[in-house]
Simulated assay, not measured.
Amino acid sequence: MKDYQLFLIDLDGTIYRGKGTIEAGVRFVHRLEQAGKDYLFLTNNTTRTPEMVVDKLALHGVKTDTAHVYTPSMASVSYLLEHASGQLPIGVYLIGEIGLQQEFWQHTEFELNNKNPDYVIVGMDRDLTYHKVQVAADAIRNGAVFIGTNADLNLPSDEGLLPGNGSQCAMIAVSSGHEPLYIGKPSPIIVKMALAKMHCQKEQAILVGDNYQTDIKAGFNSQVDQLLVTTGITQLADLQGKRQPTFVVDSLDKFKL
């Protein structure tokens, strides 16, 4: 087995599921710390700020800091600052919650533009309204670049699967006639930026998660090894006839470092 130096770890379905703790996931993080291995929580959740992620992890028995958290909100900001052309400030229309809003508005390079933004950025919004969809679709039809923070169609929760940001983006895509560029998993964009943040080569890293469609495909798309744990969305039966992850376990206790 490779001597992996960086573990890119999913949260929902891997460390916790809703309010419930996945104890083997917590023990896995503790084992990484004891072994001196570096890790980064690579979540697709944009509803929380990095500080909120740290607080939630603490409730589940993981003590960490914001330097070990990377979200699609952070990656979207970095992507736009790197790729946006033209004069500053960059006009954006945001759909999303505090995790997305706070990340953008702490950068003076961006300004809110509801009329003719350069970019429409869509993150999970549990207060999504018809008006927000209309404004976003109109802007995209008028030339704004459509960015989706992640393509998750569903989210695991205590109440079962909930509609995810991919479902929101699908509605806007159908209305506007344009598909979004996705930043979060399974896009290689967020993985590339996470590796750069941690100064790690892809051959030295492994993606850990419960969702074949996001976590594992992110590894395929970025040539980073994958560790699928069946404590969340994807089960063994779901892997039949598909490209196999590098490793599959039913508990992270079973993965030897």
Score class of each variant (00 low, 15 high):
197 K>Q: 14
175 S>N: 14
187 S>H: 03
158 D>Y: 04
184 G>E: 06
194 A>H: 06
209 G>W: 01
155 L>W: 00
140 I>M: 13
151 A>T: 08
219 G>R: 01
137 A>E: 11
159 E>R: 15
206 I>K: 03
205 A>Y: 01
184 G>H: 04
216 I>K: 01
221 N>V: 08
138 D>R: 14
204 Q>D: 15
153 L>N: 13
211 N>Q: 03
171 M>T: 14
218 A>H: 04
208 V>G: 02
167 S>A: 15
213 Q>R: 09
219 G>M: 05
171 M>E: 10
178 H>I: 13
140 I>V: 15
170 A>D: 10
215 D>F: 02
164 G>C: 04
186 P>R: 02
187 S>C: 07
212 Y>C: 03
213 Q>L: 13
211 N>H: 08
171 M>F: 12
164 G>W: 01
171 M>Q: 12
176 S>D: 12
149 T>C: 11
216 I>V: 13
183 I>N: 08
145 V>L: 11
222 S>V: 09
216 I>H: 02
161 L>K: 01
137 A>W: 12
183 I>V: 12
209 G>R: 00
160 G>Q: 05
150 N>M: 05
169 C>Q: 05
158 D>T: 03
189 I>S: 09
221 N>K: 08
169 C>R: 02
164 G>E: 02
221 N>P: 11
212 Y>N: 02
182 Y>T: 04
